[in-house]
């Protein structure tokens, strides 16, 4: 027996719903009969049809929240919907910055726990059992709530495959009032900075080339970018070199960065901390280049080259250039 109703926190930008939003809508309709999307911002109306195609029968639109961070106002809007008697069985949040903020706020407002790092789920007897990746993905736990719904879940990217419904219909769009939360919502965005990107997005690219400490210095990251460009891929990075300031955070692959599942992942000078591996171990094929034979990355590599990135990568770049 499926759940009756599931809500999905739908993040919608100028380009439409995020891929994780569509993954959540797809999985929500697999486990629940009715699916509603909760969304906000200036682009909801334009994205409503897409949300419907992926399973949302209803779209709750909290409207444009301006320069406020969404955590407080959107959680307050959701809480008032629940308090008004609208009680879903499950609420799915994307494991994104804003998704986690809203989940945490709502959890405390409703005094309901939240299960995080969900990577799989199944419904049985009207209950949802969820799979969780623990300790950097080395262990999988099965968990369930022991009280009545609504139940809150934060779901990791790329745990499910997004699929549009055939002949999905336009959802009903209902405007959702945002209660006044006073000083709680006092944080304001005063400037937005986006990193420039020329190739495919890191979490959508078929090929990802990532660099780590083994590169030896920020100036050598250019090899990673060039190799990614030649393979029509995206350049990625380990947390170590992001923290060291060599490359922007938006390049980070791992638990606190992006989750990627490309056709090919090429790890260059990356030892393979669990923090990193959880973000890329789902790649279809993994190539690793590292001078340390004992590096953990080799334990999951389909092809491992024990060697110096400063010799192997230039040779690879030259060979690819001569083919093009």
């Amino acid at each position: 027996m499926a759940l009756d109703t599931a809500w999905v926190l739908a993040q919608v930008g100028e380009a439409g719903p995020t891929s994780l939003t569509l993954e959540l809508l797809t999985e929500a309709r697999n486990v629940a009969t009715k699916v509603a999307a909760i969304s906000w911002g200036p682009h909801v109306a334009a994205a409503a049809a897409t949300l419907g195609q992926y399973g949302a029968g209803t779209v709750y639109d909290a409207g444009d929240i301006g320069d406020a961070l969404p955590g407080v106002p959107i959680a307050a809007a959701m809480a008032s919907l629940v308090d008004a008697g609208n009680r879903p069985d499950a609420i799915f949040f994307p494991a994104s910055y804003d998704g986690r903020d809203i989940a945490g706020r709502l959890s405390a407002k409703l005094d309901r726990p939240v299960l995080t790092n969900v990577v799989g789920m199944r419904s049985a007897d009207g209950h949802l059992e969820t799979e969780h990746a623990l300790f950097g993905g080395t262990h999988i736990a099965l968990a369930r709530f022991t009280e009545d719904p609504p139940h809150l879940y934060v779901v990791r990217a790329k745990s499910f495959t997004a699929e549009a419904l055939e002949g999905g219909s336009a959802p009903e769009v209902v405007s959702l009032a945002v209660p006044d939360t006073g000083s709680l919502a006092a944080a304001r965005i005063t400037g937005r900075h986006e990193e420039e990107r020329s190739g495919p997005a890191l979490d959508e690219a078929a090929v990802v080339v990532s660099g780590g400490r083994g590169l030896g210095g920020a100036e050598h990251y250019a090899m990673i970018e060039e190799l990614a460009r030649l393979l029509n891929g995206a350049p990625g990075a380990s947390r170590a070199i992001v923290d060291a300031g060599w490359v922007p955070y938006s390049h980070q692959v791992g638990q606190t960065g992006k989750t990627v599942k490309p056709t090919v992942y090429i790890a260059c000078g990356i030892s393979g901390a669990t923090q990193h591996m959880v973000g890329m171990k789902g790649s279809k094929n993994i190539i690793a280049v590292n001078k340390d034979r004992e590096a953990p990355i080799f334990s999951i590599a389909d092809l491992g080259i024990v060697g110096d990135v400063h010799k192997v990568l230039p040779a690879l770049i030259d060979a690819l250039r001569s083919r093009n």
């Binding site: 369930r144 022991t146 280049v289 491992g304 024990v306 192997v312």
Partner: peptide
């Protein structure tokens, strides 16, 4: 208000071919 019913080790990816770079690594 939750219970973990089971914890198991995730299916491990097995290592493939690991080779020393003797100048042929790029190839």
């Amino acid at each position: 208000r939750q219970e973990v019913t089971q914890v198991s080790e995730a299916e491990a990816r097995t290592a493939g071919e690991i080779v020393e770079d003797d100048g042929e690594g790029a190839q």
